[in-house]
Computed example of a mutant assay.
Amino acid sequence: MIMDDRQYMSIGQVQDQFLNPKTPKVGKENNSLPTGENSFASVLNKIKDGADNINSEGAVKFSKHAMNRLSMRNIELTQDQMQRLSHGREEAMEKGIKDSLILVDQLAFIVNVPSSTVVTAMDQTENKSNVFTNIDGAVIA
């Protein structure tokens, strides 16, 4: 076994280095975390604020699966239907529903309420059995 002369820091030394940083000396580069517009915290807050804005407005987004279902079944939503779907999601959220069946006209949507995501969509005439699973509430919008 070959040993080299490298010296490794102990766990205590590593903790001290990151948990108790010393004031940078003159002439030394400051290795502190970035702050300001491009810092991780700033970017994270912008993303969070954007998500909050979407949820507060009641807008829904469609999963890739739901988009494929809409396309495959030639379902096109009007602006009024989109607003009613979003309103249905808001009502489901107010009632504490996590996964909801939302009916809009002859269309049925399974929506994950906390993420405001339509998981799947179908025309009610296509669902011959009229059985929906893995939901904990339904809204007729």
Rank of each mutant, 00 (worst) to 15 (best):
Gln13Val: 00
Ser42Asn: 08
Ser42Glu: 11
Leu77Gln: 10
Lys48Met: 04
Glu37Phe: 06
Ser63Thr: 13
Asn127Arg: 15
Ala108Ile: 07
Pro21Glu: 04
Asp5Phe: 05
Val14Cys: 14
Met72Asp: 15
Phe18Met: 02
Ser10Arg: 12
Ile140Trp: 14
Thr117Ala: 06
Gly88Ile: 04
Arg73Asp: 04
Ser71Pro: 00
Ile11Gln: 14
Met1Ala: 03
Met67Phe: 04
Gly137Phe: 00
Gly96Tyr: 11
Asn134Tyr: 11
Thr133Phe: 06
Ser39Leu: 02
Asn30Gly: 04
Arg89Pro: 04
Leu77Ala: 05
Gly137Lys: 01
Glu76Pro: 01
Leu77Gly: 01
Lys22Tyr: 06
Met1Val: 05
Gln15Met: 11
Gln7Phe: 01
Gln124Cys: 06
Gly88Lys: 05
Val104Pro: 02
Ile75Gln: 14
Leu103Asn: 06
Arg73Cys: 01
Val118Trp: 08
Gly36Asn: 12
Ala66Lys: 07
Gly88Asp: 03
Glu94Thr: 09
Val43Lys: 08
Val113Asp: 07
Gln83Cys: 07
Lys95Val: 03
Val104Lys: 01
Glu90Thr: 11
Ser39Thr: 07
Lys46Arg: 15
Glu76Ile: 15
Lys61Thr: 07
Asn68Gln: 08
Leu19Gln: 09
Pro21Met: 05
Lys28Leu: 09
Ser56Leu: 01
Asp123Ala: 14
Glu126Phe: 12
Ala66Leu: 05
Phe132Glu: 03
Lys48Val: 11
Asn38Met: 02
Lys98Arg: 14
Val113Leu: 10
Lys98Asp: 00
Ala92Lys: 11
Ser39His: 01
Val111Gln: 01
Thr125Asp: 12
Lys95Pro: 01
Ala138Tyr: 04
Asp4Thr: 10
Asp49Val: 12
Ser100Lys: 13
Lys98Thr: 07
Ile140Glu: 11
Met122Asp: 08
His87Ile: 05
Gln79Gly: 11
Thr133Ser: 02
Gly96Thr: 11
Ile140Ala: 07
Thr133Pro: 00
Asp123Glu: 15
Met1Tyr: 03
Val14Ile: 15
Asn130Gln: 09
Gln15Ser: 04
Val104Asn: 07
Ile140Gly: 03
Ser32Cys: 11
Thr120Asn: 01
Asn38Arg: 07
Thr125Gln: 10
Met1Leu: 06
Asn134Asp: 15
Ser56Thr: 03
Met93Pro: 02
Thr23Val: 02
Lys28Trp: 06
Leu77Val: 08
Ile11Ser: 13
Asp136Gly: 15
Glu57Cys: 00
Val43Glu: 12
Ser42Gln: 04
Ile75Glu: 10
Asp80Thr: 09
Val118Thr: 07
Asp5Leu: 09
Asn134Pro: 04
Met3Tyr: 03
Asp105Tyr: 02
Thr125His: 09
Ile2Cys: 09
Lys128Thr: 01
Met67Thr: 12
Asn127Phe: 12
Gln7Thr: 05
Asn130Phe: 10
Lys64His: 00
Asp136Trp: 14
Asp5Ile: 08
Gly36Lys: 12
Val14Pro: 12
Arg89Thr: 15
Asp5Gln: 06
Asn112Glu: 10
Asp123Ser: 15
Ile75Leu: 13
Leu44Tyr: 14
Val26Glu: 14
Lys98Leu: 05
Leu33Ile: 00
Met122Gln: 13
Gly58Met: 13
Val111Arg: 05
Ser86Arg: 10
Lys25Ser: 02
